[in-house]
């Protein structure tokens, strides 16, 4: 049986610009990069995205499951910034913590763990594989 051969040069390569780019450009041959699944790439971009000049950072902060829309975040309610939050049980040097302080610190640590788990779950569901068109939307 005769094998049929029909060579079609890539349309990507036919543009003069691109042909120039491939010709003697070392970078043109350099490599390939396995970027991962859509969910992985999206997670990486969303968690590392850098502010570009047009980005308003005040608009980028997401609440990640903290209360209803329009509700103040816990940190805002306490009147402290995120950077101000101290670790559980942290005290000033030399100050002895009372039982009440220790209980409060323990409770705060538990709450933080819960919140972290919730945030992680939220992040996974948002940054996962589910995009419009893959689920019920548009049925």
């Amino acid at each position: 049986m005769e094998n049929k051969t029909n060579i079609r040069i890539s349309a990507l390569a036919t543009g003069a610009l691109l042909a120039g780019a491939i010709g003697n450009n070392a970078n043109a041959t350099e490599s390939f990069d396995l970027l991962g699944t859509g969910g992985e790439l999206r997670s990486e971009i969303l968690s590392n995205i850098n502010p570009i000049s047009f980005i308003d950072n005040r608009n980028m902060e997401l609440k990640c499951g903290e209360g209803k829309c329009g509700e103040k975040s816990k940190a805002e309610e306490k009147g402290q910034s995120k950077a101000d939050e101290s670790k559980a049980g942290e005290q000033k040097c030399g100050k002895k913590a009372s039982q009440a302080d220790r209980d409060a610190a323990r409770k705060e640590a538990l709450e933080r763990e819960e919140k972290k788990a919730q945030d992680k779950k939220e992040k996974e569901s948002k940054a996962g594989e589910h995009k419009c068109g893959e689920g019920k939307c548009g049925n």
Partner: peptide, 17 residues
Amino acid sequence: KVQFVSLSPYFATLLDT
């Protein structure tokens, strides 16, 4: 799942051909 691979012009044109 949908995978993404970034390709250099060389690999892209070769693969497309």
